[in-house]
Nucleic acid binder design. Sequence first.
DNA 1: GTGCTGACACAGG
DNA 2: ACCTGTGCCAGCA
Length: 116
Amino acid sequence: MDELPEYAERVLEVAERIPPGRVMTYGDVAEWLGEGGPRQVGRVMALYGGAVPWWRVVRSDGVLLPGHELRALDRYREEGTPLREASRAAQGHLPRLDMKRARWDGAGARSDEAHI
DNA sequence: GTGCTGACACAGG
DNA sequence: ACCTGTGCCAGCA
């Protein structure tokens, strides 16, 4: 069963490399791979994301994934991912990620590709 | 081929 | 915080 298109495989691999407590945006993943675009990454995640830590791949504005907000929030609290609580005016809405602190650029992911 | 849709991004208002 | 338009790229009817 082989199965997954190579591009999807690469996207999933990057998702797996994101350390706990950190996140990468769809655009970051695409840029890191040097291929495809944010929408392609989003599509791969929608189709095969269930096999990897999907909650670590997010939108650039830090909004939680529609339909999985609670599940994601649970993971973030568990991993200690930086969140921004909803402001007074937006009370009732769920918190969003603190992208400034949570965003991971992928630095260091390349240096140790020794074990594949 | 044509047009809409999507787990996107960015600039404006 | 909200909504809108534009750019982007691939899949699908």
